[in-house]
Design a protein around this nucleic acid. Structure first.
Lengths: 361, 361
DNA sequence: CTGTTAGCGCGTTCAG
DNA sequence: CTGAACGCGCTAACAG
């Protein structure tokens, strides 16, 4: 079997010095130890293939140089890993870069079902110095419990209503506003708004932005038809198809859709035509995130972009500052959103426009 | 600041029992401790918000229930994180599922440049029980050094030439064979083969498979024109464009391309037409992996699929068995590959076919 | 069935 | 500058 790992005391003995000395030179402290001894100890350590034991070191220093990362669960439990979603891929990419720059590794907690108490215990076990939670919800008990336990925590793309909550997110309100402003400028006057529901801070914020633009244009809130996928517990496709059915049967059909989720938006871009609604001739589709997914639909989907890698990166920086004690709790970082106009949006067709105006009277 | 965490001894004291007793009931051992004391200790622990310290526990048990994961580096260093590649996304997804089933968390080592010695020390620091290396190369010094250090290690999608090397991969040779067989059956007689080079086990294996099919059809090896991107150190696009140039200028131009990398294959599907080569009319393109990336090019790209999630999942199982001592080193797991025929491949056009036959005489 | 004791490997203080 | 000594929080012998 494995011979025992060589310990620091082994190195010290072999080098003919005390363990203290060995400890000092091997942890690279700037204490006053003669250059000769330093070199000798290092050389012996190298020869003996000495590797410091991270666990023992963590036990005494209280630092692990690891950051916990928790993704949310996909809403349909078909797929076990939200990382399949391009959103997570990009955020994690930014987190990875930030972690590297600050000298952390990432501890990816594996979860398959919403057993948040177990997950909380795992996070609080001391295996990491802090925690980055990604795309969870405003009513998430896990987040609340971590923040209340005073565990260094940063939320990405959402926040909870607690004074100690630190988070990094996009300017969702501004993004929603921009999306709506654009559709209004094209002439749309009846617009469907598809979002997760008000338990999601980004869903809620984007909705507020959309309403801002509506009010600024002096249009009634009834111009917006909201659909929430919050309560939906059926497989994904069902909700999408139900919404499509409702759109088709609506006598006063919206001429545009704003959909807060990228993959759902893309589904509409590609699957409304099957049901007889051409995109963008009969109906415009506007989504969010604007990753490669939106770029590659037919036609490409207009989308409100956020810099996901930048957000992930910032999350690590904020967490690092908390850990360094440079930051008080309750910080908020926001990044702007930007509209990427593609071919899934166009002015409403004359026919629908006319019909719309008549009914508005 | 933070009050000290409550320790097991605090719980024991509060419950009026010894630390041993507390330890036994809190680690859920099946020893004979009266139900009353168990309940009492548990209740006190709950009230005091006791969380076992994973570091201390690991120090004494020698187990962390963490698995190290190391991705390779993207070959162009523009993008810091290979996880942006769909290949990694899917493999990690499988790894995550497997890890969850076996009760492990994942330790994602952050690396930005090829400082493999530092990375090796990090992996050998005892912060994890074993290691999964993904899509590295046959000559990778990191892999060699870990295997030789006898650290529990599983390679995914590659292997090194060492008796102790455990790996999980697809049947690359069979996949290459199948791809070539298919193109030959369409009538292609001159085919370009784009691969990383022979330092990559999958590149080499797929090439062997391609040659198998060629030999079986009694065709000369000269029917295959190989291009390797191994030596290429320029930005990605340059290599792609250079190959495209060479294809264009080839008087005896191949009528089909087999490209071992999915995103490169997709680039050809979409960017050969710009240069005047229609796909598939003038030239067929066949790639690998067959993820959503291949499905969504215009036209969709024919591709040899492998079940990446299954491979990732298997990697964890193999590693777990090694850790449980159920498995000797040097295991190999292979998964079959399957051809997904799409619209980027077709019989060679009559003109090229004729020209090809004349020149073959 | 419970308490006592000895480490796990390392960081750090405090006399020599 | 070094060695002895203590403690991080917990597990697991070994006695009582």
């Amino acid at each position: 079997m494995d011979k025992k790992r060589v310990r620091m005391s082994d190195v010290a003995k072999a080098a003919g010095v005390s363990r203290t000395t060995a400890s000092f030179v091997l942890s690279g402290k700037d204490c006053a130890i003669p250059e000769v001894t330093r070199l000798k100890v290092r050389k012996i350590a190298e020869q003996m293939q000495y590797r410091p034991n991270a666990t023992a070191r963590s036990l005494v220093t209280g630092k692990t140089y690891r950051l916990s990362v928790v993704l949310n669960l996909p809403e349909n439990f078909h797929n076990s890993f939200s990382m399949m979603d391009r959103y997570f891929t990009e955020v994690i990419s930014g987190v990875q870069t930030g972690a590297w720059k600050k000298g952390y590794n990432l501890l990816l907690h594996t979860i398959e079902h919403p057993d948040w108490q177990h997950l909380r215990d795992d996070i609080l076990s001391g295996a990491s110095d802090g925690c980055i939670l990604i795309a969870r919800f405003a009513d998430d008990p896990l987040t609340t419990s971590l923040v209340e336990a005073n565990f260094p925590t940063v939320c990405v793309s959402y926040r909870i209503d607690h004074p100690g909550c630190c988070f990094v997110d996009a300017e969702n309100r501004q993004g929603g506003d921009r999306a709506m402003e654009y559709l209004l400028s094209l002439g749309h006057r009846r617009i469907a708004f598809l979002y997760p529901g008000d338990h999601s801070s980004w869903g809620w914020e984007r909705k507020e932005g959309v309403l801002d633009a509506l009010r600024r244009a002096s249009l009634p809130e009834s111009a917006l038809v909201s659909y929430s996928w919050q309560e939906n517990r059926n497989p994904e496709s069902c909700w999408l198809m139900e919404v499509r059915e409702k759109l088709l049967k609506d006598p006063n059909r919206p001429t545009a859709i704003i959909c807060c989720d990228e993959s759902r938006a893309c589904w509409f871009t590609e699957h409304l035509p099957e049901a007889g609604l051409r995109v963008p001739e009969d109906i415009s589709v506007l989504g969010f995130n604007s990753t490669i997914i939106s770029q590659r639909t037919t036609p490409p989907t207009t989308s409100v972009a956020q810099s996901l890698t930048e957000i992930g990166n910032a999350a690590v920086h904020v967490l690092d500052e908390i850990l360094e004690g440079k930051l008080s709790a309750g910080m908020e970082h926001r990044f702007p959103m930007q509209l990427h106009i593609r071919q899934s949006t166009a002015p409403p067709s004359a026919e629908y426009e006319k019909k719309g105006s008549m009914e508005r009277v």
